[in-house]
């Protein structure tokens, strides 16, 4: 099989992967919000409940996403959660952003773009979508 360039998954599953990673990053928002509330207060319970809900949604989505791509491809995209964390930090909590964080985010994005465009592995099918069913 000829070595492929570009994405190893369909745009739909690539989008699904990134949506699941957004959910994963939101988990940290609820965790931090819970930390700001009085323990066992209604808001604290609500924030913790939302944290576990996002955790559950991510776990369910991640298992579906993994059916359609290699683990290395999925993991190449995972650091995007760091950048989402930065976005939530600024927009939700008004946190300070250092120059290193901005430079680091740009380098991470470049790394993701390089890694993701690495194409499917050399002739190896990578997921159930491609027929790798044991």
């Amino acid at each position: 099989m000829k070595k492929k360039r570009g994405l190893e998954v369909s745009p739909f599953w690539f989008l699904a992967l990134h949506l699941s990673l957004v959910v994963n990053s939101i988990q940290g928002v609820f965790s931090k919000l819970a930390g700001k509330q009085e323990t066992m207060s209604l808001k604290w319970i609500l924030c913790f409940g939302m944290m576990f809900l996002t955790m559950l949604v991510f776990a369910l989505a991640w298992q579906q996403v993994l059916k359609h791509m290699s683990l290395t491809f999925a993991f190449t995209n995972k650091p995007i959660t760091i950048i989402w964390g930065l976005v939530w930090g600024i927009t939700v909590f008004g946190e300070h952003v250092s120059p290193n964080m901005v430079i680091g985010s740009i380098v991470i994005l470049i790394g993701i773009m390089v890694g993701v465009s690495g194409g499917a592995s050399d002739g190896k099918k990578t997921g159930r979508e491609n027929g790798e069913v044991s």
Binding site: T76, S105, G111, I112, G115, G118
Partner: peptide, 28 residues
């Protein structure tokens, strides 16, 4: 374990990402 093949370009991408994570974390 999974016998996944990984292209050199993906290895390069991951190395860049790791460098990015280190730069990011050092700025905290």
């Amino acid at each position: 374990l999974l016998k996944e093949k990984i292209s050199k370009r993906r290895i390069l991408g991951m190395a860049i990402m790791i460098a990015g994570i280190v730069i990011f974390s050092l700025g905290k």
